[in-house]
């Protein structure tokens, strides 16, 4: 059987909100080392990869590896019934066709349980190699959210260029043009306000803004976001989820004709 308890249930709520617009359904794979998900959007342009480690949970038991086919809009409907301060326990028997979610209020005076129907989903897995990127940029998640929101109101695509001057986001559209440059900045006493640019070589890539904006639905999960860029490769937009794990979004670049 599978059983996992997380006392900070709001994290689970935020995770599902972060990915439900991007992917309709996917297999959450459970194993003794934790929970993971890899799912692409319907056009196979972007991919969500979620890793939650067993030791990040208050309790975690999984006797046997299994995929749990989840419809995320339905998962979200059930999670919306959990209070923000509730502890959430997930339970499933081996080869079950449902996932039980139990919500406990922080003073344990209210307990509710819901069953989510599971689906059988055929999914393609992509092999994503670990690699060194030409540029890695850490910035406040709120700053990333602001940039992609602002630029989406001007254009459809963004050229992201990382140089020793900083990281520049450029777009153009019917309204005109927009450029936002962030410089390396570690002057704040608060680490979450830092912008850290780790540049091995200059790189410039073009991406569809609507996906980058969609990734910012994960802003509530982490104070910082990391962007990783290499020529001719998908961008990685990564949020650390506390001690629990991370959620990564991959987006294929626009390719020159």
């Amino acid at each position: 059987m599978f059983e996992a308890k997380i006392s900070q249930g709001s994290v689970l709520k935020k995770l599902v909100e972060a990915l439900k617009e991007l992917v309709t359904e996917g297999n959450i794979d459970v194993s003794p080392s934790g929970m993971s998900l890899q799912a692409m959007d319907s056009s196979h342009v972007c991919l969500v990869s979620l890793v939650l480690r067993d030791d990040g949970f208050d309790h975690f038991r999984c006797d046997r590896n299994m995929p749990m086919g989840i419809h995320f809009a339905n998962f979200s409907k059930i999670l919306k019934c959990a209070g923000n301060d509730d502890a959430i326990t997930l339970k499933a028997e081996d080869n079950a066709d449902q996932l039980t979610l139990m919500f406990e209020s922080s003073n344990q005076d209210r307990i509710s349980d819901f069953d989510l129907k599971l689906m059988s989903i055929e999914s393609e897995h992509l092999g994503i190699p670990d690699q060194d990127y030409s540029a890695e940029i850490k910035m406040p998640a709120s700053e990333y959210q602001r940039i992609v929101r602002d630029l989406t109101s001007i254009g459809d695509t963004v050229l992201i260029s990382a140089t020793k001057e900083g990281i520049k986001f450029s777009t153009s559209g019917d309204v005109g043009t927009a450029n936002v440059t962030l410089r390396h900045n570690t002057t704040s006493e608060k680490q979450e306000e830092h912008t850290i640019i780790d540049l091995k070589e200059p790189v410039a890539l073009t991406f569809a803004l609507r996906y980058l904006k969609n990734f910012s639905n994960a802003t509530a999960l982490a104070p910082q976001v990391k962007l990783s860029l290499t020529k001719d490769l998908p961008i990685v937009v990564e949020y650390q989820v506390g001690e629990l794990g991370n959620i990564r979004f991959y987006l294929a670049p626009k390719i020159d004709d």
């Binding site: 692409m40 056009s43 196979h44 342009v45 972007c46 991919l47 393609e124 897995h125 992509l126 092999g127 994503i128 190699p129 459809d156 695509t157 073009t206 569809a208 001719d232 490769l233 998908p234 991959y250 294929a252 670049p253 626009k254 390719i255 020159d256 004709d257």
Partner: peptide, 14 residues
Amino acid sequence: KGNQGRLESFFSVL
């Protein structure tokens, strides 16, 4: 502005 790439053209399908 270029053509939108698909992920399969960058990563191997397992």
